[in-house]
Amino acid sequence: MNIKEVVDIIGGKLICGESMINTEIERGFASDLMSDVLTLDSDNVLLITGLANLQAIRTAEMSDISCIVFARNKKITKEMMELAKENNIILIECASSVFKTAGKLYKAGIKPVF
């Protein structure tokens, strides 16, 4: 599934990474604990989180995560956007809860990491 489809399915708003809209996503992971995200060794992972700060972007950078969905209506700051752009990370805002967002993507075929 590509990013454009992800945005449509969750009713999200693409904030950063328009040029990467065709990036393919295979698996999803949901967590507000970045140490848990840092234990993953899968590729093409989409992260769903309610943690809207710079560390979420840094964590994605270190873990080779190409796309973060900020659920629960969390807002992406200018600093987060700048860091994401620098590292080619796609950022999406979404008004739904983490549970609902993850449920929709799971139903649409995104696989869990484990």
């Binding site: 507000d32 604990l33 970045m34 848990d36 234990t39 700060n53 560390q55």
Partner: peptide, 8 residues
Amino acid sequence: EMGFGAGM
């Protein structure tokens, strides 16, 4: 609050 501190 930063997403760490869980003893990992």
